[in-house]
């Protein structure tokens, strides 16, 4: 089968072929979903090298566990779950080696974000796509691991509160609080950046 034959197949056909040991079919799956898997890893790790390493490791694990994939979810969801779990493991290891962030302390001490004034944001207003990406990137950088992870698991993985709580090893109440903080902080950070640019 040549490359064109693979590119015309849908994910399910490629998965079936890959489950029989066809690495070319798997390569096509990698090509299709690599940006998403990398973006998810980058969103969590905030580091290009780590995101590359973990995203590639996720693909290797995906290959090794491919026969376990029964199609309950889309292949894209399945492989991004793998990369998220790898990122969480990595972040837990890193967390053990450092003290809690100021944001986490703030959250535990009562949550100043709840007193923040509401900020109205308009994602498309006057921003070029690359510029927007860079600004969001910087804003995400300012979130702690806990807040960023809660946000990413909820927004990108469509996880429910209880699932996030299980993955992160905390209560549902803490998930709600982290999510609330993360969203409001993102809105505030992005609104500030926009105002700076307008000056």
């Amino acid at each position: 089968m040549n490359g064109n034959a693979y590119s015309s197949k849908d994910d399910r056909e490629l998965v079936r072929a890959a489950q029989k040991g066809d690495t070319m079919a798997f390569e096509e799956l990698v090509a299709r979903h690599r940006d998403k898997v990398y973006a998810r890893a980058y969103g969590m790790m905030r580091n290009e090298d780590a995101a590359l390493d973990l995203s590639q490791e996720a693909w290797v694990k995906g290959w090794q566990r491919l026969r376990q994939f029964q199609g309950e979810s889309s292949f894209s969801t399945w492989i991004t779950r793998i990369v998220i779990n790898l990122c969480l493991d990595q972040l837990r290891k890193q967390k053990r080696q450092r003290t809690d962030s100021l944001e986490a302390l703030s959250e535990e001490s009562g949550g100043v974000e709840r007193q923040m004034p509401v900020v109205v944001v308009n994602p498309s207003a006057g921003l070029e796509r690359e510029e927007l990406r860079q600004r969001i990137d910087r804003a995400l950088d300012q979130l702690s691991y806990e807040h960023r992870t809660a946000l990413i698991l909820h927004e990108f993985q469509d996880m429910e509160y209880k699932e996030i709580a299980k993955v992160m090893g905390c209560s549902i109440g803490t998930v709600m609080s982290r999510l609330f903080y993360a969203r409001r902080r993102m809105a505030a950070l992005l609104a500030n950046l926009k105002n700076e640019d307008l000056r």
Binding site: V118, L132, R133, L151, A187
Partner: peptide
């Protein structure tokens, strides 16, 4: 207004992820 703000964060994240490419 609060809910609009919370939703705005989601919109930003969607836009962010769409733009990321493997280097």
């Amino acid at each position: 207004a609060l809910l609009k703000e919370l939703e705005g964060a989601n919109t930003f994240l969607d836009a962010f992820e769409r733009e990321l490419r493997v280097p």
